[in-house]
Design a protein around this nucleic acid. Structure first.
Lengths: 193, 193
DNA sequence: GACAAATTAGAAGAGATGTTCTAGTATATC
DNA sequence: GATATACTAGAACATCTCTTCTAATTTGTC
């Protein structure tokens, strides 16, 4: 019933990803997104109620993709693998890496999100939080401000830092980083007191 | 000769800093900057040729402020102190910290910089690069891609990671981070092969 | 006190972007 | 094949922001 689609929602999100990764959030104008597919702007608005919603969906899709494998390793209790997973994922998904690690949600999306999107975002965040807490409990037999700081540092912040420089330079994170992240991980969470 | 100034260039740069730290780069509109001082937009343009130049000067002022102490420690050969200096500096300069560590130059300034500013930026970068190379040479007796990666990781990237989360949360980096950064530093650069 | 220069003052211009709106087009279903 | 409908198409509208421009004001100097 009705005309068949020439441009899908997915395609517009993909186009937005290209633009962010290549030229930053400000390059993601509706007309640029449409232009990538030689589509009219009207077709973008036929799929998304606003620019912010389009960008929010790109953001969530990317976070979900990353979080999948990260949580997997973490839930198996393999913290080191979780830390190294960040490097691998970025190597396998350079554009998404640039998006996720270089742009914060607030930069991408200006206004508040609609209900539907907000709840998905909350779910993802809750999922990550609880997995990290579980892992901390498993490791320290205690979840405190201090122990959490320590796991988050070794699990999230250091891998993030390791990868950041390469992404900014538009390069794939060199293999040598794996050793640095591993060494750091061991020194912070390896042999517990 | 001439009317005395009611608003100085410095004041506008300060206003811009407040705006970036509080509400991100996009909040730094000329009228917002002027509004902070209840000044007319014309007065901003009387001091700066464009918004980009204003932001570039804010950026350079901040980088210079940070780099001063960092290079000091590094030139003394005290790598650990340089790494920890990042945490201290951010605690002492929360707004500047947010600016320097959370926003990249490209996010802040859209176009290319005018000559005058470009050369200052080049000088600062060169100064940092050479200090890091010297330190690497001093430590490893060799400056290669691998050894540089290692020093930069322990000296710059890890402290950055340590501080980032707090800044995003609008808090001062907790004291416990010092230990984490120290431990990491020792494990990466402490006992060399 | 008159003049020149630096500065304030803010309205007006120019350009970009998000969003809406109206019209036209292709396709599934009857 | 007629019809309803999902979709394309892009012009038009509304804002927002940077920048420019003209006029008024203050202050140092002769």
């Amino acid at each position: 019933m009705g005309r068949s689609a020439k441009y899908t929602a997915e395609q517009f999100v993909d186009a937005a990803l290209e633009l962010v990764a290549d030229r930053g959030p400000s390059a993601v104008t509706i007309s640029a997104v449409a232009g990538k597919l030689r589509a009219p702007v009207g077709s973008v608005y036929h799929r998304f109620t606003s620019r912010d919603v389009l960008l929010a969906k790109l953001w969530l899709r990317t976070v979900r993709s990353f979080q999948l494998g990260f949580l997997d390793a973490l839930r198996r209790g393999d913290g080191l693998e979780a830390a190294l997973y960040t490097l691998q994922w970025v190597r396998a998904h350079p554009k998404e890496g640039k998006l996720l690690l270089l742009y914060r949600r607030e930069e991408l999306v200006s206004g508040p999100w609609p209900q539907e999107i907000q709840s998905v975002a909350a779910d993802l965040t809750a999922e990550l939080d609880s997995a990290i807490k579980d892992f901390t409990q498993h490791l320290f037999a205690e979840v405190s401000k201090e122990t959490l700081l320590r796991t988050v540092f070794a699990l999230v912040d250091v891998p993030y830092a390791a990868v950041r420089r390469s992404l900014l330079a538009g390069e794939s994170p060199p293999i040598e980083l794996d050793d640095l992240v591993s060494t750091t991980y061991q020194s912070i969470l390896g042999s517990l007191p």
